[in-house]
Design a protein around this nucleic acid. Structure first.
Lengths: 72, 72
DNA sequence: TCAAAAAGTAAAATATATATTACAATATAA
DNA sequence: TTATATTGTAATATATATTTTACTTTTTGA
């Protein structure tokens, strides 16, 4: 069975900058992933796990539903 | 770099039953995953992707933040 | 300007989410 | 009861999230 085609979009980059001007590297470290992973997430290049998303949400102090959504 | 140890918990099962008494199989089909995947998610056996979570959220009409959270 | 920091990106390796198949255990309805 | 639907679970295979390493491009501050 195949997943629906819907694509996940996010506003992590905006929220990260609004949060103390964090760098990608700093946020990645807080969350516990590599900077490259954070970079790809911000660029909507893939589909992170809910644990990573919850940690991003926690450190940026923004609700999940505000940070991530389905496009189309 | 290793992920923090925090574990993702969810209340998909409760929300699924509250939503028209959906079965695991029916929800899985709506979301586009197998029943086994849905079963493992409900049992907190692993860490689904944000896309699957967003699709669950959509079909159960519950916000992500209400369905999934970090424990400890 | 210019140097340093931050961000973008890519290839190969690894870890793990998800599928597939199959069967056992439990709930439900007749 | 008993048959059937639903749920729990397990082994193996596959797809993809994430890491590692490394380099280029862009931004920023002196």
């Amino acid at each position: 069975m195949k997943l629906k085609e819907s694509i996940v979009k996010n506003k992590v980059k905006v929220a990260r900058i609004e949060k103390n001007n964090l760098t990608q590297g700093e946020l990645a470290k807080l969350v516990g992933v590599t900077r490259q992973t954070m970079n790809l997430i911000e660029a909507n290049k893939y589909n992170p796990t809910i644990r990573v998303c919850l940690l991003i949400s926690k450190h940026l102090e923004r609700p999940l539903d505000e940070l991530f959504w389905l496009e189309e």
